[in-house]
Computed example of a mutant assay.
Amino acid sequence: MFGVGFCLGASNVSVVKINGLNGEIEQAESKAHDGNPKKVLAEYLWDKGYSQADRLAVTGRKFKEIVNLPALSEPEATELAYKFLKKKYPEADFIVSAGGETFIVYKLDKYGKIINVFTGNKCASGTGEFFLQQIARMDLDVEKALELALNQEEEYLVSGRCSVFCKSDCTHALNKGVDKGKVVAGLCRMMATKIIELLEKSAEKRVWLVGGTSRNKV
């Protein structure tokens, strides 16, 4: 007896398997869908046996409409996930959702309910998908890009104001022969700065960072 939840994100399909008796997480994994979330979802459902679940639910900002399953909005899913995880981790005042397409900061009350939402501008610069596009232009995968960035003592600063300007900065740097690692490190700093700017709207500092971008250790 088990339940399964899917998150159909802008870049990845994530799945978690829950023990139906004690509510504990038994398995969690994520896979890039490269623009074809249906294919990855089908692999999880049929090839890995998740279709045998007693309960199925789906969330995700962009693709949850492609399946006929009970759907949760992202705020609902965030509140439920927080309620579950705060049993094991320190409580938070904010949850930063740093995903493939957007950066969103949810402010929580003492009960874990969302009481306010902060978002950055609509520009793509700083999002996970934009980062993937830029490192692909350097012929790097995520692992290699982060490895190069971690070995840098300083980064090449790039604009976070506009994706066009940021892309231009990266291109200009690479054409000048700037080390790829420095450019990647600059992209990472720009992304982190965007999150910090959102958090500066409040004095509270207990923060959880979730979403694919949170896996960036640079």
Score class of each variant (00 low, 15 high):
Y111A: 13
A185Y: 06
L132V: 00
E153K: 14
G100R: 08
N19V: 01
V117I: 15
G100Q: 08
L199T: 09
E197H: 12
K64N: 08
G3K: 13
A203L: 09
D47Y: 05
L148A: 08
K205G: 04
G99L: 11
C170P: 02
A28I: 13
V164I: 15
E43C: 01
C162W: 00
V142F: 11
E29C: 09
I66A: 07
E24F: 07
R137Y: 00
D54K: 15
H33P: 02
N19W: 03
V13N: 07
V4C: 09
Q52A: 12
V117T: 15
R137C: 00
F63S: 05
T59H: 07
G181D: 04
L140D: 01
A145L: 07
W208Y: 15
T102M: 02
G23K: 10
F2H: 14
E26S: 12
K83Q: 14
E91V: 12
L69G: 02
G120D: 10
C7F: 01
D179N: 14
L146P: 06
L198H: 04
K110R: 10
Q152L: 03
I95G: 01
K217H: 06
K194Q: 11
R161F: 06
K64L: 11
F165S: 04
A81I: 01
D169F: 05
L69D: 03
C166H: 00
Q133N: 13
G3C: 08
A81P: 01
S163H: 01
A28N: 09
E101S: 15
C7Y: 03
D54V: 11
T119R: 12
G181T: 09
A32I: 11
T213C: 14
L140F: 03
H33T: 08
K107V: 03
G9R: 03
A149G: 02
T213K: 00
E101A: 15
V96K: 01
S14N: 11
T119P: 01
T59P: 04
Y106M: 06
L45Y: 01
R206H: 13
I95V: 14
M191K: 05
G211K: 10
G99T: 09
V158W: 01
E79H: 05
G60H: 07
R137E: 04
L209P: 03
I95C: 06
E74N: 08
A185H: 07
N151Y: 00
T171C: 05
S159I: 07
A136P: 00
I196F: 06
S51T: 06
G35C: 09
A192V: 13
I18Q: 07
E155T: 02
Q134V: 06
E129T: 13
T102A: 06
V210E: 04
Q133E: 14
P75M: 10
V4E: 03
K86Y: 07
D179E: 15
E79T: 08
F131W: 11
V178H: 07
S51L: 05
Y82H: 14
E129M: 12
E24A: 13
I135A: 00
G35Y: 09
Y106G: 06
I135K: 02
G35A: 10
R161V: 06
R137H: 06
K205F: 00
A185Q: 01
Y44F: 15
D47F: 03
I196Y: 10
I95P: 02
A57S: 14
V183G: 07
K17N: 07
G60A: 06
